[in-house]
Every structure is written in structure tokens, then in C-alpha cells.
């Protein structure tokens, strides 16, 4: 076991896979020599060479399209889009070309690609660096969507994603890269795609979250227990598509109440889909409507007002109180 932050764990996952499989390639803007703007690929070019880890010209569509072309020939590209707001440039290649390759060809071709991108607020970044765009991805048939919340999951999920024979959109929260260290095995291990994790057990209410919001949910749950004796169960989804609805339903069968927390703006997105599925599968177990805690439906806020905009533990506590008092 080693102590790693999430960025180091992500780098370690790429290192493990570059070593294990000669078809794995890592590329993107500034990922080679300097090791990425967040150093998530630091040292990889030195260890594996320019042939395996390389910089590209500044063009997101071509980065993603290069991955699609190489994927057809059996390479396993790990392509980085420097910041989440720049995926719009690459949407056709990511969400149309890669996501539909297996279907369009009736299984003749596939796209074994991971598109890594940092996202997430709270770091006072410039415009279009921090938006939560997972909602676009989860309504795209053919792509899997992963959002890890801690170093252990990040490494295990990224290894799973690289080994998956279908395209994966892998979102790395900026605020979690260096937030804390945790035990991470140095060897190779996987965390299964599509399996949620109960990070805090409870019996009074279920809080469903992912990414940075897992940590806000745990803070809120700790506070609720300390001040009011309320036992909240916190589920870290880890994968948004495919969604682990069974873990959610099992928790609601126990707690009969739930809220969903997402950093993205409220309309559509992951929370709406999760609530729809709860309606279909667990409505008879609910004592109250399932509420959403989310950003308001504005453009992502200016850096100066980010903290007020982002869902906070206080807003999560308010929502929990509402469903308990319904």
C-alpha cells in the first residue's frame, strides 16, 4: 500500500496499463514531456517513451478522432481533453463516432477508448474549465460515464475503463486531485464499472451523490447525526452510466427517503434520471418525494461567486430535513 492523492492514483493506473498492454497509448495537449497541466501523466513519457505517451497539436476534435481511428486498429487510446469545457469541440468524435462505432458496424469495429477530462468547481478556475457536463454524456447511447470521488476508486475504475472494449468518459474532479491522500495498492486491481459504493451507512434517509458532492454529503450526514441523531446513508455512485439502481433501491427500501445531490445545474442531468428510475422501481417504499440538491439553472458562475452557487452541506441538510418532515 502507498499513500496517494487522486491525481497520483490516476497516473498510477495509466502506468500500470501502459506497462501491461503495449496497445495502451496516452496522448493529448501537454500530456507528454511536461506530464499534463495537472501532472496527471507526469513521468509517463520518460518511462514509456514518446511512442506511447505523446503531445498533440491543440485541436480536441482531432485528438478524439485520432483515438477513434487508432481504436479500429486495436490500440487502446487514453485521450485527454485538457478541460471539460473543451469537449464541445470534440463532441462529434466522442459522442457520435466513438459511441456508435460498435452499433453502426454491427460489432465489426469498436472503440476501446477512455476520454479523460478534468472538471468540477471550487477552484476559482477560468471560464469553461469546471462545468459539470456529465448530463450530456449520460443521454448519449454507447458511452459509459465514470466520476470517481477518491484515490482508490479512481485508480481501480480507470484500470477498468482502459480494459473496457467500449468508450468511457472519465471525469476527474479538479477539487479532488490534491484534496487528500488515501491507501492505494501499488499493484494492479480493478473497481467494477457500474457498481455504486455505500460510503456511510444509515437508516433514516439515503443521500445519493457522486464526485465532489460525495464529500459534501458525508459532511452533511456527519452534521445531521451530531446535531439531530439522524442517520443518513450516503451512496457514492462512482459510475453514472450504467447506473447501479439496485444499490439505490436497496437503500431506499431501508430508509424510505432519499435526495440526490449533483454539482451540475438542476434541469435534466444525472439527478433527474436517477429520480425517474427510483419512481419506476421503488415508489412504494417512499414516504416522501425524492428531492434534488443542485446548482441553479444558470451558466456556471463567475469565480467570485462560485462558493455560493455550488451545492453546500447546508443545502443538503435543508433538503434532508424537508424529506424527513414531509
Amino acid at each position: 500500500m502507498a499513500q496517494m492523492n487522486m491525481k497520483e492514483a490516476i497516473r498510477d493506473a495509466m502506468r500500470v496499463e501502459l506497462k501491461k498492454d503495449p496497445n495502451v497509448l496516452v496522448f493529448g495537449e501537454d500530456v507528454g514531456k511536461v506530464g499534463g497541466v495537472f501532472r496527471a501523466t507526469e513521468g509517463l513519457q520518460g518511462e514509456f517513451g514518446e511512442d506511447r505517451v505523446f503531445d498533440t497539436p491543440l485541436a480536441e476534435s482531432a485528438i478524439a478522432g485520432l483515438a477513434v481511428g487508432m481504436g479500429i486498429q486495436g490500440f487502446r487510446p487514453v485521450a485527454e481533453i485538457q478541460f471539460v469545457g473543451f469537449i464541445y469541440e470534440a463532441l462529434d468524435q466522442m459522442f457520435v463516432q466513438a459511441a456508435r462505432m460498435r452499433y453502426r458496424s454491427g460489432g465489426r469495429y469498436n472503440s476501446p477508448i477512455v476520454f479523460r477530462t478534468p472538471f468540477g468547481g471550487g477552484v476559482k478556475a477560468a471560464e469553461l474549465h469546471t462545468d459539470s457536463l456529465e448530463g450530456l454524456a449520460i443521454q448519449t447511447p454507447g458511452i459509459k460515464v465514470i466520476v470517481p470521488s477518491n484515490p482508490y476508486d479512481a485508480k481501480g475504475l480507470l484500470i477498468s475503463a482502459i480494459r473496457d472494449n467500449d468508450p468511457v468518459f472519465f471525469m476527474e474532479h479538479l477539487n479532488l486531485y490534491h484534496a487528500f491522500r488515501a491507501d492505494v495498492p501499488e499493484e494492479d486491481y480493478t473497481v467494477p464499472i457500474g457498481k455504486a459504493n455505500i460510503v456511510r451507512e444509515g437508516s433514516d434517509v439515503t443521500i445519493i451523490a457522486y464526485g465532489m458532492m460525495v464529500h459534501s454529503a458525508v459532511k452533511a450526514a456527519d452534521e445531521l447525526e451530531k446535531t439531530k441523531g439522524i442517520k443518513a446513508e450516503v451512496i457514492d455512485l462512482r459510475t453514472l452510466l450504467p447506473l447501479d439502481i439496485d444499490t439505490i433501491v436497496a437503500s431506499i427500501q431501508k430508509t424510505n427517503r432519499a435526495i440526490v445531490v449533483q454539482e451540475a445545474q438542476k434541469t435534466s442531468g444525472a439527478a433527474a434520471e436517477i429520480i425517474a428510475q427510483i419512481n419506476e422501481k421503488a415508489i412504494l417504499h417512499l414516504e416522501a418525494p425524492v428531492l434534488r440538491v443542485a446548482g441553479p439553472d444558470t451558466v456556471y458562475p463567475f469565480a467570485q461567486i462560485e462558493d455560493a452557487w455550488l451545492p453546500s452541506p447546508a443545502r443538503i441538510i435543508t433538503a434532508v430535513n424537508k424529506v424527513l418532515e414531509f
Binding site: G65, M70, F75
Partner: peptide, 18 residues
């Protein structure tokens, strides 16, 4: 999608070269 295939050929060329 007009233009998308141009990038796929570029990726294939990269694969052949590698």
C-alpha cells in the same frame, strides 16, 4: 458527418506508422 472520416483516416495512419 462531413469531415469526421478525415480524422479516422488520420488515426489509422497513426496506427500504421506506430
Amino acid at each position: 458527418i462531413i469531415g469526421a472520416q478525415i480524422l479516422h483516416a488520420t488515426g489509422l495512419g497513426m496506427a500504421f506508422k506506430k
